[in-house]
Amino acid sequence: MVAAAKKAAASDSAAEKVCSFEILDATTLSPELQDGSFDKCFSNAAMHWILRPEEKREQFFRGVRNALKPGGVFAFEMGGMGNVAEVRTSILSVIGRRVGFEKAREADPWFFPDEVWMTKMMEETVGGFKIEKIEREYRPTKADAGGVEGWLRLMGKQFLSAIEDEREREECVKEVCAILKTVCASPGGGDWFGYVRLRALVHKI
């Protein structure tokens, strides 16, 4: 993605002079970026991964706040409470029976908050933000050619890593896929996931 952005900027001499692209840890933005000089910040389908470690949540939002100018905009979309609930439940059940449910929960790579949590975190706990609009939307999403198994192996890789034995891990994949066939296979064709998206438009005060 960064390579594509650099290429696009290089085709525009004006953009090439003012654009820079870096790969950074969003929870530990450098002081140089937290200088209150940015007009906008956005995140798309990433914060449910970024916010998974509880101890890093506040510093993530502080970094975004400190990077924005007063009145600057933070727009984001992420998985919201209830996102892929059928998948998450199946994986927790299958993995949990083998390694224990606490260990399975520890391997869960996602954090799906609701509007209440997000509003309190941004406006009260961290402060300096005003949420102008926030909403959750149920958005069923069709799987790509890899189907449920492809999605599970990619998105649920961290979950599956809780199982050390490779053969047992493959058994888990088959079992989860067998369960999800009942709820994800559409009579109209293809596999579908119950995505729930949390979207917000926020201003720095």
Rank of each mutant, 00 (worst) to 15 (best):
K130R: 08
A75L: 00
M81K: 13
K157Q: 05
M81H: 06
I163H: 08
K17R: 13
G146I: 12
P187F: 04
A145K: 13
L201K: 09
T119S: 12
L51D: 14
A14W: 15
S43P: 07
I50V: 14
I95V: 11
N44M: 07
W117I: 01
S43R: 09
A8Y: 14
K17M: 07
I134P: 05
M121V: 04
G146S: 12
R88S: 01
G190P: 08
M47K: 08
F21A: 11
A67G: 12
P70M: 10
A4Y: 13
P113L: 04
L33H: 14
K204S: 04
F38G: 05
E137T: 13
C19W: 15
K103W: 03
M81A: 05
V196E: 02
A8T: 10
R136C: 02
F193N: 03
A200R: 02
G150D: 11
K157E: 04
G128M: 06
H203C: 01
K17P: 02
D108A: 00
F111L: 00
M121Y: 03
V176K: 14
C41I: 15
F38Q: 09
E32G: 07
P113S: 05
F111A: 00
A3K: 10
G72D: 02
L33W: 15
P53Y: 11
I91Q: 04
A185Q: 13
T125I: 07
E106A: 01
K69N: 13
C177E: 12
A10H: 12
L51R: 11
A5G: 05
I50H: 04
V87P: 04
V99S: 07
F21L: 11
I50C: 07
R98T: 02
K56P: 00
A178D: 01
H203E: 03
I23M: 05
F61P: 07
F129M: 06
A46T: 06
K120G: 05
G189W: 10
E137Q: 11
A9L: 09
G79R: 03
V183T: 14
R169Y: 15
D165K: 10
Y195H: 09
A14Y: 15
L33C: 09
R197A: 01
P187E: 12
P113T: 07
G96Q: 01
S20D: 14
E22V: 03
T125S: 09
F101M: 03
G71N: 08
F60Y: 08
